[in-house]
Design a protein around this nucleic acid. Structure first.
Lengths: 231, 231
DNA sequence: GTCTTTTGAGCCAATGTTGAACCATTGACC
DNA sequence: GGTCAATGGTTCAACATTGGCTCAAAAGAC
């Protein structure tokens, strides 16, 4: 994303730099394969000597690939290779993805409230039931994604469905998984359940405006908790 | 066609060029069998040495066919390698695409009004000027797409930029091309010019709400004219 | 006071970019 | 057929960028 690199915090030791770089990798700001700024640039950025930055980079060992004359790259964790659809999502940071979700999903929910037929409503209701009954993190994640997808399907716009699937593919990225796992406490889980239920009710009542508002609220909460962990 | 190509982004390495050429091929700007500009011309276009451009072309290996004395051609690709959002765009109906545009672009314009820096504004202004000065259908189309893309770039959200490129790829589909060509009368062309100008002004004034409203109006007009022809 | 870390500086080696020149092939034109 | 411009193929030396490395002095940490 070509960040302005706002490093307002103070960095004093190599350990600080290791932490900052790991954070940037974890939250997707520097995705796999990304080329880091040159050592000399990083040094200026952190306000430290180049040797200190080098020391930090060296400590990160296998997470980075360093090539003389070319630069330092974030090592691709094996497997990655999500095919096609998620290509863009894969490189996107959680902040970017949530921004796009907040743009699209409220409108999609409003459309769904207008266009959903009884089959759509039945499916959405069933998935909601299962997501509430879900035990454990992985199962909840699965039905959460399925619920949002079912809402998109009810819009009857295949392009929107494709978008939702692309977004869902981001959930399978390692750093996303870590973030969500960290942020999803029991209390939050039940809050999300309530928000999902309210959204489904609004769609059933054909109240597009209410659906729009509720999912916007919901995603705002998701974003805030995700990025709070991030910081 | 000899398009001016509007390479506003900065290219510094062979890797950048590889990415740009792959993008142009993927979004249909350079379809299968298309002849690329000569190496020396590409070099001037990207502002790089011919050797650097050659290095980029060589790295693309089987995607290109290079013949001494004739030129460089896009190789016909058997099978769908590298499917992306663009692939779905191509299969989508104009009605679906316009529905999604009406959802996303107003919000993107509002974001752009908030986040555009002076460089972004200068670029947007320049592209607007060229789009108004454009002679003929193809040139106008080119700058029209470039204008919308420049607005998305100003949001600083790479995911939104990717989305806009996917939309633009739809413009290179023969079906779309025919529709737009039929619908774009001289009167409509000047109306679009006015709407574009008003939008750019709103962004410059940092008036997010106005920008949102104006682009929504604009896209509504585009949709109505497009679908009137379609029907 | 001793030990570790950080600093600043310099030099080296690997890689990429540049600008230029010249060659080989193709196709259009006479 | 001969000529000529256009185009890709090749090579080369100079320069720029970037990580690898060393070393002595300064700054903290215990």
């Amino acid at each position: 994303m070509a960040l302005p690199q706002a490093t307002n915090t103070r960095f004093q030791t190599a350990e600080d730099v290791v932490g900052d770089i790991q954070r940037r990798i974890e939250n997707g700001e520097w995705p796999e394969g990304h080329r880091l700024p040159p050592e000399r640039e990083l040094a200026a950025l952190y306000g430290l000597a180049r040797n200190t930055v080098r020391s930090a980079l060296n400590r990160m060992g296998t997470d980075l690939i360093r090539v003389v004359g070319r630069g330092t790259y974030v090592k691709a964790r094996n497997g990655g290779s999500v095919p096609g659809l998620g290509r863009h999502m894969k490189d996107a940071s959680p902040a970017e993805v949530m921004e796009v979700r907040l743009i699209i999903e409220p409108q999609a929910a409003a459309l769904a409230a207008h266009r959903a037929n009884s089959d759509d409503l039945a499916e959405i209701t069933e998935i909601l039931r299962r997501s509430i009954a879900a035990k454990g993190f992985a199962e909840f994640e699965h039905y959460d994604a399925a619920l949002h997808l079912a809402v998109f399907r009810a819009t009857k716009n295949q392009l929107l469905v494709d978008y939702c699937e692309a977004i869902n593919s981001a959930r399978h990225q390692p750093h996303w998984h870590r973030l969500k796992q960290k942020s999803l406490t029991d209390g939050l889980r039940s809050q999300y359940d309530r928000e999902h239920s309210a959204l489904v009710d609004a769609i059933k009542q054909r109240d597009a405006e209410k659906a729009r508002r509720l999912i916007h609220q919901h995603l705002t909460h998701v974003r805030d908790h995700l990025l709070a962990i991030d910081a």
